[in-house]
């Protein structure tokens, strides 16, 4: 049942314990305590909204930065990754396989802000060999949601 509750919340974090109870056959109190425990265990890390910023003027600038590093003997990629993760400009950070090591998604108010983060903070870090910065031009899909031109309901009336 834990999985079921998590799946429902992952789809829509605003579902109330009462609704989830009705959707699962659990009691509302049981749902609340499952959620509480999941929050404590950091199974549920955070609740947030997917915002389509491009509809507003004050859009954020996003960049995908490929980072090549020289891993350390003891800690591998963890030490450098933990350092990079602490910068507020870093929204998302993954260790990846392939031609580079760390994939950073950085957010800023202006292009300038991201540029100076890369040149003044990220690139000079000990252990960072090189960076390649790709600015995001347009978002089509985020977290499983197609942002524009999704499919409406096209059902017509039919005898069945």
């Amino acid at each position: 049942m834990l999985n079921e509750v998590l799946k429902i919340l992952e789809e829509d974090a605003r579902r109330t314990p009462d609704d989830i109870a009705a959707m699962t056959g659990l009691k509302p109190e049981e749902v609340s305590s499952i959620i509480k425990k999941a929050e404590e265990d950091r199974l549920i890390v955070k609740y947030k909204a997917i915002v389509n910023w491009s509809k507003l003027q004050d859009e954020h600038i996003l960049a995908l930065i490929e980072v090549k590093t020289s891993p350390e003997k003891e800690t591998g990629f963890d030490a450098i990754a933990e350092t990079i993760a602490r910068y507020p400009q870093v929204n998302t950070l993954y260790l990846v396989s392939g031609t580079y090591d760390l994939a950073v998604i950085a957010v800023g108010k202006t292009l300038q802000e991201i540029a100076s983060f890369v040149t003044q903070k990220l690139a000079p870090l000990e252990g960072v060999q090189s960076t390649a910065t790709h600015f995001l031009l347009k978002k089509y899909k985020e977290d499983g949601v197609i942002l524009e031109g999704g499919e409406e309901n096209r059902r017509q009336s039919v005898v069945l």
Binding site: K7, I8, D19, A22, M23, T24, G25
Partner: peptide
């Protein structure tokens, strides 16, 4: 089916 099942329980309950 998982998704229908949630709505099924919800509507029967409701």
């Amino acid at each position: 089916v998982e998704d229908y099942n949630r709505r099924r329980l919800f509507i029967v309950n409701g």
